[in-house]
Design a protein around this nucleic acid. Structure first.
Lengths: 204, 204
DNA sequence: GGGATACCCTACCGACCGGTAGGTAGGAGA
DNA sequence: TCTCCTACCTACCGGTCGGTAGGGTATCCC
């Protein structure tokens, strides 16, 4: 029983959505095209009508997410605030983004660990963001609006602390005994992390 | 050309060693028994003479590492020191362990993200360690030897900051432009993280 | 010497992988 | 109405996966 063809754009969106979930949950190797096709409700060869290969699907998912992340950071940095206020703004924006894009966090983590075939493009995509953040921190430290630290290392520590909470949610669920992604847990975690960095950075 | 059989114990050790590297580098799905067998220098069926299945090999690798980690934490906590001094001691011990067991870090990370079939046993193995650490922090906070914080969340933030530095080394290499696992980089990172937590915890 | 056992091998299995070939249904435009 | 295109299908490709069967050889124990 043949099926009425859907609009190509719609199917492509459905594929990307299903693929993002699968890749985030099980990684590149742990996801088969059949898995994705089943989620969409079509057969595998029909997937490959919309994308030339599994690799192309993965790449599309990755770039979409990096694009979202870049847009958010760019917007957050637009604001001319300085000192601790700006740091807190960016921290908050990052938190909100990660809350709403847990797939992105886990995918990024997998890429960071793997150093796989797509890794280079992702890394060079993220580097300007990192450099800009380091530049901002160092400028504010020199101006005395933030306490002096090794800016890149501090940034890495912060990125690690926040990202881990979202990427390792399955483990943290067991450790805490409650859902770490619940409104209340998120509120508490966010306050704790912001506090950690205020103690380190805010000259008061 | 048949080969002289080696002592079973030796081969088993070689298998576990090769498997740990492979699983850490490429994950469970991304590692085939042929990969491991090639590293050891035997054929795949010979692997399965020493272990009943791929899953059994993975499980053995995982439990060995969790055992090492448990032993280290237990030893570090043995010391009767209190307050910030004890926190700094444990932090230092963890750093050293992670430096020497980067395979463990990446494997643990993969497990934490996946929530896979082996995950439950690992998580319940780690939970007592987590609970004990939280207990220590809260005791010291009540006694006024550490500044008050939400202990579990602070611990998670710390664990995330440190672990990420090692697990995400491939990405960080690109971001920093230097080897994050070099003696000098490690020294700087360690000082920065210890500083971060001293600012938060040490009542001075 | 003769088993028994431990270790490793080649040869094979069924299942699944990503990807291709070829065909069909149905809408759009001449 | 004829033609072209899109979207999807079934059937198949070569190759790899984890795992098994069965044989050969070295070593240990009697």
């Amino acid at each position: 029983m043949p099926q009425a063809p859907a609009a190509a754009a719609d199917t492509k969106v459905l594929i990307l959505h299903a693929a993002r979930r699968r890749f985030a949950d099980h990684g590149y190797e742990g996801t088969s095209l059949n898995d994705i096709a089943d989620d969409v409700g079509i057969r595998r060869p029909s997937l490959l009508h919309h994308f030339p290969s599994k690799e192309a699907i993965y790449r599309a998912v990755l770039f979409e997410l990096v694009g979202d992340w870049t847009a958010l950071v760019t917007a957050a940095v637009q604001d001319p605030t300085t000192g601790w206020g700006q740091v807190e703004r960016v921290l908050s924006a990052a938190f909100e983004f990660f809350e709403q894009h847990t797939d992105f966090v886990r995918l990024a983590r997998r890429e960071a660990i793997d150093g796989g075939p797509f890794f280079d493009e992702i890394a060079t995509g993220l580097q300007p963001l990192f450099d800009r953040a380091v530049g901002f921190l160092e400028k504010e430290m020199r101006a005395g609006r933030l306490r002096r630290h090794n800016a890149p290392q501090l940034l890495l520590a912060g990125y690690g602390a926040i990202l881990s909470y979202f990427s390792d949610a399955p483990l943290i669920t067991v450790l805490l005994g409650t859902d770490p992604l619940s409104k209340e847990s998120l509120r508490v975690h966010r306050r704790e992390v912001v506090d950690l960095f205020r103690n380190a950075l805010d000259p008061r």
